[in-house]
Nucleic acid binder design. Structure first.
Lengths: 153, 153
DNA sequence: ATACCTAAGTTGTATGTACACCGAAATCAA
DNA sequence: TTGATTTCGGTGTACATACAACTTAGGTAT
């Protein structure tokens, strides 16, 4: 049914095959679907997934530097600055300046939230493993990591 | 080396396995890597990939409604409104109101840009197919679509 | 020791994206 | 026909995220 040359055809005959198999759209689409699912599970914590994971890391590595934290979360340092700012105003983490680096520590309130965050992570994971199958989910995750690593040069 | 119960262990012993195999991070990471690669290839068009694809669809389906366009691009109608606003101020597309729906048409200037957009799409696709292998890239795309569809209920 | 260089974090600014809500048009029900 | 409901698109607002430029601190070389 589809002409394999569609991508080269005049606009008026274009059937948009270029959209269906485009990694740009498919990767973004997955990212939104996964984020939405995670957000639903994290709603019980009052935090979005990113903040939840952030607190969990800080709880597991008190005094971690912002640089390392940013790497673990795959976000840029400037983005992390904004996140830490927000969590600090909510009294969930605190900064300790040490020369030119900043160490991030959990607060009591932050630590108290960790069990609920852990529950949310687990529920999220359970939900997608149930949907995709555990083996398929693991495989997909591995594929995503492998592909990302290749693309990041 | 890794304790399989890490996710259940006290925070101080947590090795962050929960990050490495978390679909939330891996999907977002891929999305950023792919988007960055696409942006580099689309730089020659002066547009970001999303706008480029948008123009290409409008060029291929002049008079498409915003609703349909949003569906094709996997973005919400409100987001599309902003995009069309921008492209209209750049004289690359134009709206024609028809009752309560809006039909989107390419302008001359927009049409003139299409060959370059098509080149950018092709270069982008060639780049990632070269990096991942064509078969693997197709397979990955298919996996992403299948997973997204499952997660969107 | 002074003068560069590098590295960590912050800030200004810009972009993509969504959601909740609104108005107008269309459709359906009485 | 009139009134209620749905649908389309637009707006206000909010958030995640990035990049470039800046500041300050630490390290290095002569």
């Amino acid at each position: 049914m589809n002409n394999p040359l569609n991508d080269d055809m005049p606009a008026s005959q274009n059937d948009e095959a270029f959209l269906r198999d485009c990694l740009f759209f498919n990767a973004n689409r997955l990212s939104r679907a996964v984020t939405k699912m995670a957000e639903e599970q994290f709603a019980q914590t009052g935090l979005s997934p990113m903040y939840g994971y952030l607190i969990r890391i800080v709880n597991g590595s008190p005094g971690i530097t912002q640089k390392l934290l940013a790497e673990k979360l795959y976000i840029t340092p400037s983005t992390l600055t904004r996140f830490i700012d927000k969590l600090e105003t909510k009294n969930l983490v605190e900064r300790k300046v040490q020369g030119k680096t900043v160490l991030v520590y959990p607060t009591e309130k932050g630590n108290a939230l960790v069990p609920r965050i852990r529950d949310a992570s687990k529920a999220f994971k359970a939900e997608y493993e149930n949907l995709l199958g555990k083996a398929a989910a693991d495989l997909l995750s591995a594929e995503l990591v492998k592909t990302s690593a290749l693309m990041e040069e």
